[in-house]
Design a binder for these strands. Structure first.
Length: 461
RNA sequence: GGCGCGGUGGCGGAGUGGCUACGCAGCGGCCUGCAAAGCCGUGUACACCGGUUCAAAUCCGGUCCGCGCCUCCA
């Protein structure tokens, strides 16, 4: 099947045609590892994880290569090390691990390649060398700068022309620049800053060059999809295009550029001073990662998203209902070969996850209403398969509903079973006062009882 | 100032010329000892003002409000 994707380059939806259907390649800008990932960092990870799953479904698991970088050299990291006293390598290692843990809690698959910037310095130096040799970059005061006037299409992605940029500039322009829009490829490091020997002296890469060098190494000079947050369109992606295109003799860099919309938190622009800067690490203490994932996917990826804790609570409730339906079906899933048509159609239409999830709800309702065992098994299988495509509903329902055994801090599973047994006796004797008291006591502990045809089941709130 | 995005029922959120989105919450019914869960039913929504059209939330113009980016930087 052919899917459609919104291409920022063209500002319109287009049919997605891979360069090589046996080797579909996508690159997404990853984190700078100096602090816990916040929810704004998580959105592209989750969104492009759905795209990755969809591409694997269509082209085959072995025919999609997904690369996401780890930026482990950056002035923010240097500053953090200076402020905290922790060594740069400790900061980056610890933060990278936290990032991977957090993203996996959100149900994101590991990319096939996760290149680190510090392991690709040689590739960057080579690329910068080519740019200098070809006259696209120049050396001044220990800096290597890309000269934007050497690339006629500069500004195409972000839809701006250079005159506007200069006119609207509110930032002081470094005096050594030939053109105010020129940007740094390589800059000198002082002795106490991380640095590498290069033809231009000891220094470190500028922000943009790493993505160009790493995508070239792992995906080749031209590849299919490049993704990231909308805030990266300018200057980061614009500069990547300029660098890569010029380093490759003018050949096309990326066919489809995709950008997710920005986030707010609790109706406000996210900011540390307002205290609404949610990190995934903190949210995980309060909510299951899957509820955070669903919250992100309930809004189309290009729409603005106001991220609220009430929204996560609602998503948690919805997941409870899904897992309840899966458990209560009481049959083994009969999983079909292909994902339900409406779900594929929704995702194939520029990743319409809200619509895909609406179909998940419809499947759930059908499953709950079904009476025939084979029909239930089929619907359960359809729901699970469709859920998997968006990275949801993959947990064991009983585990989800019962949560962790709280024997240390509260009622253990066996305590609960004993009380349910006691209540069962009371009900058999029509002693409903005792029966209801037991249920209330459990409810106070957050344990909900549900009397079904085959006995009483329970779950933790 | 420049470029761009968005404003849908109590809430979240699709849709984008005529047909129930979907979900959460609420209300009514069925089921239940009572509940819960589930099923069924239930909402004169599309920021405002003009215009185009047989028909607009959907197209066009204007207004208001919210937000993003504007270069080496937090």
């Amino acid at each position: 099947m052919t899917i459609q994707l919104f291409n920022t380059l063209k500002r319109t939806k287009e049919d997605f045609v891979p360069i090589d259907a046996k080797r579909v390649r996508m690159y997404v800008c990853g984190p700078t590892v100096y602090d816990y990932a916040h929810i704004g960092n998580a959105r592209p990870v989750v969104v492009f994880d759905v795209l990755y799953r969809l591409l694997r479904e269509i082209y085959g698991e072995d025919h999609v290569i997904y690369a996401r970088n780890i930026t482990d050299v950056d002035d923010k990291i240097i500053k953090r090390a200076l402020d905290s006293g922790e060594s740069i390598s400790d900061i980056t290692k610890r933060t990278e691990q936290a990032f991977l843990d957090d993203m996996s809690a959100l149900g994101a698959l590991r990319p096939d390649v996760q290149p680190r910037a510090t392991e690709h310095i040689a590739n960057m130096i080579t690329m910068i060398g080519k740019l200098v040799a070809a006259g696209h970059a120049y050396v001044v005061e220990g800096h290597v700068l890309f000269g934007v006037s050497s690339y006629k299409d500069y500004g195409h992605l972000s839809g701006r022309n250079r005159d506007e940029m200069i006119a609207g500039s509110r930032v002081e322009v470094a005096p050594y620049k030939k053109d105010p829009a020129d940007f740094v490829l390589w800059k000198p490091s002082t002795d106490d800053q991380p640095g590498w020997e290069s033809p231009w002296g000891r220094g470190r890469p500028g922000w943009h060059i790493e993505c160009s060098a790493m995508s070239e190494k792992h995906l080749g000079p031209t590849f299919d999809i490049h993704g990231g947050g909308q805030d990266l369109i300018f200057p980061h992606h614009e500069n990547e295009i300029a660098q890569s295109t010029c380093a490759h003799g003018g050949s096309k860099f990326v066919n489809y550029w995709m950008h997710n919309g920005y986030l707010m938190a609790e109706g406000e622009k996210m900011s540390k001073s307002l205290g609404n800067f949610y990190t995934v690490h903190d949210l995980r203490d309060e909510f299951p990662g899957e509820a955070v994932r669903l919250t992100l996917l309930k809004t189309h990826y290009r729409q603005p998203l106001d991220f609220r804790k009430d929204g996560i609570r609602e998503a948690k409730k919805e997941l409870d209902d899904f897992y309840l339906a899966l458990r209560n079906a009481g049959v083994k899933a009969d999983v079909p070969d292909t994902v339900a048509g409406p779900v594929m159609a929704a995702l194939g239409d520029d990743l319409n996850t809200p619509k895909a999830i609406a179909h998940l709800f419809e499947l759930k309702t059908k499953l709950n209403a079904a009476t025939d065992a084979s029909q239930k098994a089929r619907l359960k299988g359809e729901l699970l398969l469709a859920g998997d495509l968006v990275g949801l509903l993959g947990q064991d329902p009983e585990t989800w509903l019962r949560g962790d055994d709280k024997s240390a801090s509260g009622l253990s599973d066996s305590d609960i079973d004993a009380m349910i047994e006691k209540r069962k006796q009371a009900r058999a004797n029509k002693d409903f006062a005792t029966s209801d008291r037991v249920r209330d006591e459990l409810a106070e502990q957050g344990i909900l009882l549900e009397d079904g045809a085959t006995g009483t089941t329970w779950r933790r709130q």
